[in-house]
Design a binder for these strands. Structure first.
Lengths: 302, 302
DNA sequence: AGAGATGCTTGACGCCGTCAAGTAATGGCG
DNA sequence: CGCCATTACTTGACGGCGTCAAGCATCTCT
């Protein structure tokens, strides 16, 4: 079952499970549309009918009748615009606001009822997964991505991510995950903040990738390690930005050169290294992590 | 913003973003309800009107008219039941099945269009998050939980999980996450499968917890480590099951005793240890991971 | 055999949502 | 300034959804 099919399955079961298709909104005697009108009005008091119709994707005639009825019920007030005599500014009355409050409460209670069997931790997890859904549906905007230092939780994420991604793409066995864990343990334990640094790319709390600048045995030589970007954050120029941040840090820290090890199969990364000024200084076939790979070394003079 | 509020926000934006409220289903000239009827019929050929109405939560009268109309259009056939002359078994005709196929295709295309800006990796992530939503909404059933050995990705998950959970609940600093990573690196590197074992609790691909049985310096003494359950999987008897699996393994591996270290603040876990036959053999206040804790040792004779 | 339950159909009705026409005010253009 | 297209909103007409209630045939239970 591919992603689209899984998404369709979600649409079916979720709308049913949450009763989102209901005509009568929570036995309030109001239509979902009417509630949406009230809710939108509570958010944008003083809008015009047109803007409202636009916002809710409603027929203007239909909306006109709803507004009229609501006015009759005292839920909202319309006052003619001073700018344009054709327009009328619509706002909720106190009664209308009270109703919105009651409806919100009913909606909360309804959601609570549907999640009765789910504990607090589960609810947070549900909410988080939902935010992930919305978040992933809006593609990553490179400008919102921040590069920050490593924090609690990052090491585990990196280990899992590297382990699973390379197992899937290159067939690496568990020893690779272990190696990544070792690198991180060493970094966390023995890091010299003056000349070693991690960059974690993140957008709104969602981790996207990493790159590390660490000291080597050789004086004046920095190592670039754990360069990774989740697939959906690639081709946005993020890799270049991370690489440049890492190089800048290395320069500022006083290193003369920087080296990195990678595998030939990582075409995009290798191309990026070369575009950033790294030169290939070694290439040898070897067996690592249970598969045959061509290990490559790149160097750059800072 | 609490979980319920976040879920409500999702309901609003998601239904809008996916256009699930549309009256006319994808310009097919059919109602969402009609499409649901067809779809349900394609899944359950030969159902009765009652079962259909039940399944789709539709008014029987309304459904009756829809079915009648569909029969007139040659989309379905009704044949009287041999069991019960009041009933009629409804099934799609070839024409009806063809229509369902076309509609499914249109729906796929529609979802694809809405996700046009999202790459393949992002789509999989969306689908996964959706499945998480549905999954978490149905509480964990203890009987579906399996205990398996450690696999790729687990180590990273464990490190992240321990790091974040103990930072949140006990205020532990990053050194705790590092310690967990060290324990895991050591386990992955030097594990003796004959007498060391990890148990990962999982339900439908979702990791719930862990417990490890590892060798100690002292001959005949096993150590229980990394006992953890995600909050939403607690109070299901899972902890006991994991503990028992671990004790059984230790017994079978020939250990004479088992010891574990924990902190006084973990009341539920301590109670479980005692209920399982462990006895408190030491308790001392100390400073660990940046906070003051009371470290406790428990022992059991196997 | 008769009463009540069951499976489905039909009738009546409010109102949603859509198309189209109508009214009043505005603004652009010569 | 005056005409006319445009804009903001209202009103009319209508198909049909969804809901309640009544109706009819059949089954089941006693």
């Amino acid at each position: 079952m591919d992603a689209i099919e899984r998404i369709r399955a979600f649409n079916r079961s979720y709308t049913q499970a949450m009763g989102l298709m209901a005509r009568d909104y929570l036995d309030s005697g109001m239509t979902v549309t009417e509630v949406r009108v009230l809710y939108d009005l509570s958010l944008h008091p003083g809008t015009t009918a047109r803007a409202l119709a636009e916002d809710l994707d409603l027929d203007e005639g239909h909306l006109s009748r709803i507004v009229k009825r609501f006015e009759g019920e005292g839920l909202l007030v319309r006052r003619p615009s001073t700018q344009d005599a054709r327009q009328r500014h619509v706002s909720l009355s106190a009664k209308g606001r009270a109703l919105v409050g009651r409806l919100a409460k009913a909606s909360r209670a309804d959601v609570e009822r549907r999640l009765a069997a789910v504990g607090p931790a589960g609810r947070t997890a549900v909410a988080e997964a939902m935010e992930t859904v919305l978040d992933r549906m809006t593609p990553v905007a490179a400008k919102d991505v921040v590069l920050r230092d490593i924090a609690i939780g990052d090491a585990g994420w990196l280990i899992q991510c590297h382990g699973e991604a390379y197992a899937a793409s290159d067939g690496f066995d568990a020893t690779f995950e272990t190696l990544v864990a070792e690198i991180l343990v060493d970094f966390l334990r023995n890091r010299d903040p003056a000349c070693e640094r991690a960059f974690i790319a993140e957008v709104r709390g969602r981790r996207l990738g990493s790159v590390f600048c660490v000291r080597s045995e050789t004086p004046g030589l920095a190592k670039l390690r754990l360069f990774y970007l989740v697939p959906e954050a690639r081709r946005l120029g993020l890799g270049r930005r991370m690489l440049e941040a890492c190089l800048r840090f290395a320069r500022d820290a006083g290193y003369a050169r920087m080296a990195l090890w990678t595998h030939e199969s990582h075409r995009a990364a290798c191309a990026l290294y070369e575009a950033s000024g790294f030169v290939l200084t070694g290439s040898k076939p070897t067996r690592s992590f249970g598969v045959d790979v061509v290990e490559q070394q790149y160097d750059i003079t800072l």
